[in-house]
Design a binder for these strands. Structure first.
Lengths: 163, 163
DNA sequence: AACCTTTCCTTGAAACTTCAAGCAAGCCTG
DNA sequence: CAGGCTTGCTTGAAGTTTCAAGGAAAGGTT
């Protein structure tokens, strides 16, 4: 960072502003929708979704944190809350006595089943119904590129310059 | 929402997952970078940027909240914090005795000037250096479409069905 | 086995956001 | 100008996230 800064071009600035506005507006929108209809914020809902798609509807804490792209600490707090709601249950991991499995309960599954249609509709209305198929494909590619570059393993997580 | 849900296609699902992962990873990344180098989270940094670009480096609270796409309440707390840091100052609005102006102080401007290059570099590295010019243009258009559809004035903010 | 390191997860406190409530000034309508 | 409605902003409490610290089990290493 000691070199002269390369500022953003006019178009890059406009894109960046649009990105910031769209993403914060959408996250807000989803949070409100889910808080209203499912009684939890978007991140928590995403955890239930991940669990519902996992074999046996259960996942190691660390795995869940990684696929959801959140810290373990955050997950730990979140699962505690979902446990109080009766939607998730903690379970000892048989193979590793340090481990914990987060398990989606039947009640949790029921909540998901009940609220999924409304959530999908919200996502559709905010994104997919407004974009052409080409744009959906472009967006997918762009987001995959960005996500790849931001993986903890992809940047400086393990100090590559020290190797 | 009483009609049968239209689920997402395979590609829409992949795009949606990529979107969620990329946006959360990036927001996290920016928060950490700015917390480390500027001592504030990304949203607060954005407020200083907005103020720095406003005439007289000052903006009515409501205007600032609107351009930053956050609630007034959140802004009120945020400005209180920035005020404690000496980076922003509150000022009575001459024309409307209810109003408050948020003013960027010289210290706030200095912080911005000092940390902007590093921040731009981070944004570049995470997004613009990884995308082709076409993709930047595509992303801009896509985000503008989404943001437009999510404006409080654009959806159901003022109950259009009651008109 | 003793020791050190790493992995897995939790905890409490501090920071931040949301939500509902509220005050005060401007604005209308009669 | 009185009454009620709206706008602009703040506040406190509850909920969520981050950060630093730490305990316990697993995995080397000697």
């Amino acid at each position: 960072m000691t070199t002269a800064p390369r500022w953003l071009s006019e178009e890059e600035q406009r894109t960046w502003r649009a990105y910031l506005q769209a993403t914060t507006l959408l996250e807000d929108h989803l949070d409100r929708q889910l808080q209203r209809d499912a009684g939890m914020p978007h991140v928590y809902y995403g955890l239930l979704v991940q669990l519902s798609q996992a074999p046996e509807r259960r996942l190691r804490m660390t795995e869940l944190a990684e696929t959801a792209k959140i810290t373990r600490s955050r997950l730990s707090h979140a699962v505690s809350r979902l446990e109080r709601n009766g939607w998730v249950r903690r379970e000892e991991c048989p193979s590793d006595r340090r481990g914990q499995n987060a398990v989606l309960t039947d009640e949790g599954y029921a909540v998901l089943k009940q609220t999924a249609p409304g959530h999908v509709a919200t996502v559709r209305q905010a994104m997919f119904d407004r974009l052409t198929p080409e744009q959906v494909s472009q967006l997918g590619e762009i987001m995959r590129v960005m996500a790849e570059g931001l993986q903890p393993t992809g940047a400086d997580a393990d100090l590559p310059w020290l190797r």
